[in-house]
Design a protein around this nucleic acid. Structure first.
Lengths: 223, 223
DNA sequence: TTCAACATACATACTTGTCGGTATATTAGA
DNA sequence: TCTAATATACCGACAAGTATGTATGTTGAA
């Protein structure tokens, strides 16, 4: 086992960021305590203020680094997968975390946005960047589907993307408040049902065989 | 002009509640300052703590009285109007406040829920009561529509109600973060489009004349 | 006259952030 | 390569301010 260096500034910074992220996700930014973060990391106050100018700066770093990475990993990169756009979206939605702990803490992007956007313009701008990247990623995929003919051409990709984001966030909120994974599962099912309604109508009206993945065969939701 | 009594406990309590509500909506519960509320009302700390045992108790009263009344006025009572259920829902959604200030401060129910539900079970329960009443009101209306034949029978009223709530809250969040009334308007349009898709298919397939309100004639959204 | 309704001053706990100082790593020069 | 000089990383007590809540006094209304 290799000896851990006594000083490892990158590691220290990263540990602070992660602990701060967890604390902020738990309690919100304003009521996140510096001392709590320090206690969780065994880092001292001096070290923290060496790496970050202020609590605010720490918060910005959480948005720019930790949360941005979450969006990238959970949405932006999967959006680039191979396959039909709608299938990709359905897959992403299905794969969103569903464990009780995750449901309770919901989407950290939404949480921070709710809390900080009206209070602090710097936070708001940073969070908006993430929201826009998220929506733009979805919209781009939808446009691709439209030019491929697998996504209905009568819908506006930007608005539809925004709609999907709103649905996901809305359900995350409800599930968080209900503290009930069931609420989230029902929401997911309904979102998936809606996503299916975005497919371009099958060209061969009846009898035409198409390659269908299993989940496409499930009963259609009511819209 | 009638002389204002020097002591009017009910009025004092109500003024405190309203000012506290505004401050909580602005800054969130945790960072709402008692002193700010006092300054806004010209009430002293002794008076406040005469009417409310603690800041928490004040918060509970905000939920139980102020926010509950908002839900009632904006949703529960309108849900009981005369007319076709889907039209009623569309009307409610269209009438939701759209002014920049309102958009920025979004739905206070959602805000408080986001902030306090994971931290304080008492808050969570109270807020959940409101969410459930909200959803139940919508679901009841949908069921009525189903038995009247104006709402599609292949949808689950409870899930659909929950879906609508999630959409509204999700869009409110996005609009709040974007600080852009346009975002909210686009969201409203899309929600209304979705609501229209809940109508039972017209029985007379073509040419059958039905009474239609103007907004029903607008172009259908893409789903 | 009695009690609820309010006023004021204060107590206490906790917050973020600072500051002098120390230990370790890095680099420049001989 | 060894060493001196400097930069970086870190420590932890304390300052300064703010938070909620309390103790006690005063006043108006029934």
């Amino acid at each position: 086992m290799r000896k851990r260096r006594l000083r490892d500034p990158d590691r220290t910074r990263e540990r602070l960021l992660q602990a701060a992220f967890r604390e902020v996700r738990r309690s919100g930014f304003q009521s996140a305590g510096i001392n709590t973060i320090l206690a969780a990391t065994n880092v001292t106050k001096g070290a923290l203020y060496h790496h970050f100018d202020s609590k605010e700066a720490l918060g910005y770093a959480i948005v720019d680094e930790v949360i941005a990475k979450l969006v990238r990993d959970r949405w932006l990169l999967p959006l680039l997968s191979d396959g039909q756009p709608i299938d990709i979206l359905i897959g992403i939605v299905r794969r969103l975390p569903t464990r009780p702990a995750d449901v309770r803490e919901s989407c950290p992007l939404l949480n921070l946005a709710q809390e900080m956007s009206p209070l602090n313009e710097q936070f708001r701008k940073r969070l908006e960047r993430l929201f826009l990247a998220w929506q733009e990623g979805i919209a781009t995929l939808l446009r691709k589907g439209q030019s491929q003919g697998t996504v209905r051409r009568d819908l506006n990709p930007d608005e539809t993307a925004s709609f999907l984001v709103a649905m996901v966030e809305g359900h995350a909120s409800l599930a968080k408040n209900a503290q009930n994974a069931k609420v989230w599962e029902v929401g997911t099912r309904n979102i998936v049902g809606w996503l299916k309604s975005l497919r371009a109508p099958s060209q061969s009206r009846r009898g035409g065989r198409r390659m269908l993945k299993k989940h496409v065969l499930r009963q259609r939701q009511g819209f």
